[in-house]
Design a protein around this nucleic acid. Structure first.
Ligand code: FES
Ligand code: FES
Lengths: 149, 149
DNA sequence: ATAATTCCTATAAATTCATGTTGATATTCG
DNA sequence: CGAATATCAACATGAATTTATAGGAATTAT
């Protein structure tokens, strides 16, 4: 299966949650709230947020009243950065980014295929910022509400 | 990680191997040869070829002198078909093809993102036939040989 | 009959996914 | 100060999935 890991999926939702709460006075969001919102166990979120912190996509505030915030404005964080932080690399097969993974890159007839697909995906994720996604979600929400009326 | 499973990778190489041997008199290729060519264990190839057979992408000939051939001409087999046969579905996250996988598709802000990415990939794989890939590989090979001269 | 080859089922090994445990450290607030 | 709140860190554990190997039964050409 070509599949995005749960780390990538959950991490993206985590970041979107932070993006939605970004810059409304009471900044820091605690993992417990995100856990409840997104229905992901706190323990797992703790693991997932570590690489996001290391890659300076989120800032942590320790102690009582603490929590997490985005390190930058939502419009300055690209989805590709998030996925890259969470996955290390973001290629369909290792050899696309690690020459030593396969022995016969020079000969391999599929290498260029997987490479092409990987670049396609990268371009897509590169063109999306957290703000874009939040905006999309808000539009969707509006539509849903209009429907329900 | 966004990653193509080994099944998908090995299966594609298997099919390409069959494509290269397609229609040159002595048709059927035995797994042993493919195993040696591609350096994949016969046992694993046996498992991988089952869904390819079920989806009528390859034909098998049993017994001594038997082996496998493509069920259709290489130009009539799309990469997307191969991957679909091997993976069941070929989406970045399950919910894109299985509504019941996630509970909140209607609300989920990331659903449309993953769906968009999945469709991008599908389009890419849909536009490539085995023949295309073999042709690409031959060109690459020629180039390599020219270089080595 | 014999050898070659697919077919079928079981299972071992490795990795990913998700939760749990324990306790340390930093911060706010009364 | 002391209590409460949260992050931080290092493991441990078990379920699920993926990856890979193994043994032997069924089929066919010679
Ligand atoms: S799959 Fe990596 S070089 Fe072919
Ligand atoms: S990830 Fe499946 S609906 Fe959001």
């Amino acid at each position: 299966m070509i599949r995005l890991s749960t780390k990538g999926r959950y991490g993206t939702r985590l970041m979107l949650n932070l993006a939605r709460h970004y810059g409304n006075g009471n900044d820091a969001v605690i993992l417990k709230h995100i856990s409840e919102d997104e229905r992901i166990s706190i323990r797992y979120l703790e693991q997932i947020i570590i690489p996001l912190k290391i890659n300076r996509l989120v800032k942590s505030i320790r102690g009582a009243g603490g929590g997490y915030t985005l390190a930058r404005k939502p419009e300055d964080i690209k989805l590709s950065e998030i996925l890259h932080a969470l996955e290390g690399n973001c290629c369909l097969v290792e050899c696309v980014e690690d020459d030593s993974f396969c022995d016969f890159i020079e000969i391999c007839p599929t290498y260029d295929i997987w490479k092409g697909a990987t670049e396609l995906l990268k371009g897509y994720f590169d063109g999306l910022t957290l703000k874009d996604i939040v905006t999309m979600a808000e539009k969707k929400d509006k539509k849903n509400k209009a429907k329900a009326r």
